[in-house]
């Protein structure tokens, strides 16, 4: 199974990188841009013959909570596809 995890700064938490990009966009002529946030994508593959979709979902969710994201400052979502 192919997993893609999206980690983004939590709403209300200052994102210094996003803020810097947001400030620079008007200099390039892009006006009216707001809400710039910089996160990360983590791709991984799970190889297990008898893993159900529910079990895979639970496993990835736990990975996110315990290591891949810091719930204090980050939100996460993920997609799982067969492959």
């Amino acid at each position: 199974m192919n997993v893609r995890v999206y980690v983004t700064p939590k709403k209300g938490i200052l994102d210094p990188q996003g803020a810097a990009v947001e400030r620079s966009l008007p200099n390039l002529g892009f006006s009216g841009v707001s809400g710039v946030q910089i996160g990360k994508i983590i791709d991984l593959t799970i190889t297990a013959d008898d893993l159900t979709a529910e079990a895979a979902h639970a496993q990835v969710d736990e990975m996110c909570r315990r290591l891949l994201a810091n719930p204090i400052i980050e939100d996460y979502t993920f997609t799982i596809s067969e492959g």
């Binding site: 200052l14 210094p16 990188q17 803020a19 810097a20 810091n70 204090i72 400052i73």
Partner: peptide, 17 residues
């Protein structure tokens, strides 16, 4: 220590980048 949950909060990128 904050990652381990032994202290509250988190430490993020400096505002000056």
């Amino acid at each position: 220590l904050v990652e381990a949950g032994l202290l509250p909060g988190a430490l993020i990128r400096n505002t000056g980048l």
